[in-house]
């Protein structure tokens, strides 16, 4: 019908002053992305440790060495918390942590920011299927982090080795999630796509993004880019 065509092709001039402010915003966006990528390579400022210690009094009191070690190895605080959250999940599910899964060898895992993460020696439990929902952090609210961290560290046998393993598991999970998400993106020419699935993934990735978790520079870039992509499509 004619009116539909007219509506589709209609043009309306936006206010003339919109472009200057938009141009400024775009340049700021570019600058922000660049600085975030640079931050991924930069060492955190020295006062950050004090903030971490303050936010995790119970955990720091019990096993300060673990957290200091994590910090010394340039693991962002949020990543440590995320790792501890996963440790909590692991304990609850009784899956990928058992005495048999820890070993001295894993203490040698490179942990400095920017270094590639060594592949996990052996996946402890792969998600059942690519289409299944592999993991969820929906319940991991920031206000629970301290409690979970305390509980995680009070778990018998919890130590630095295990936390390293957790971090590696986080990395593996993120990789898996990225793959999963890529599989969910619409095929070329597809007229529909799983909105609910993408929404869920977006939520998850935003949590990761906001947490400043930095598994590797390439991953950070992927996450920023993918969050942007999912936000717009």
């Amino acid at each position: 019908m004619e009116w539909q065509k007219k509506l589709y092709e209609q043009e309306m001039s936006p206010p003339a002053d919109l472009w200057p402010s938009l141009a400024k915003q775009i340049q700021q966006e570019q600058g922000r992305l660049t600085s975030r990528l640079q931050e991924a390579e930069a060492a955190p400022p020295s006062h950050v440790w004090l903030q971490i210690a303050k936010s995790l009094p119970a955990a720091a009191d019990r096993q300060p060495g673990i957290l200091r070690s994590l910090y010394r190895y340039s693991i962002p605080a949020a990543a440590a918390l995320l790792g501890l959250l996963l440790l909590k999940y692991a304990m609850l599910e009784g899956r990928f942590f058992s005495p048999a899964t820890t070993s001295l060898q894993r203490l040698r895992i490179p942990l400095r920011t920017g270094q590639p993460i060594a592949p996990a020696p052996k996946p402890l439990q792969e998600p059942a299927a690519r289409t299944a929902h592999p993991f969820s952090l929906h319940d991991a609210k920031p206000q629970h982090s301290r409690v979970l961290a305390r509980e995680a560290l009070s778990y018998p046998g919890s130590n630095y080795v295990e936390v390293c393993d957790v971090r590696q598991e986080v990395c593996r999970r993120i990789n898996y999630k990225l793959e999963y998400m890529a599989a969910c993106l619409p095929a070329q020419g597809a007229s529909s796509y799983p909105i609910a699935c993408r929404r869920e993934l977006l939520t998850w990735l935003e949590q990761i993004d906001k947490s400043n978790y930095i598994p590797a520079p390439g991953h950070l870039f992927d996450i920023v880019e993918l969050v942007s992509l999912l936000s717009s499509e």
Partner: peptide, 27 residues
Amino acid sequence: AARMYAVCLRYAGNAEGAQDILQEGFV
């Protein structure tokens, strides 16, 4: 901009909302 602004106006219902959508969309 003109064509996309028309799209925004159709969804927004008013010029102010349409300009917000236009700006965010272009970003």
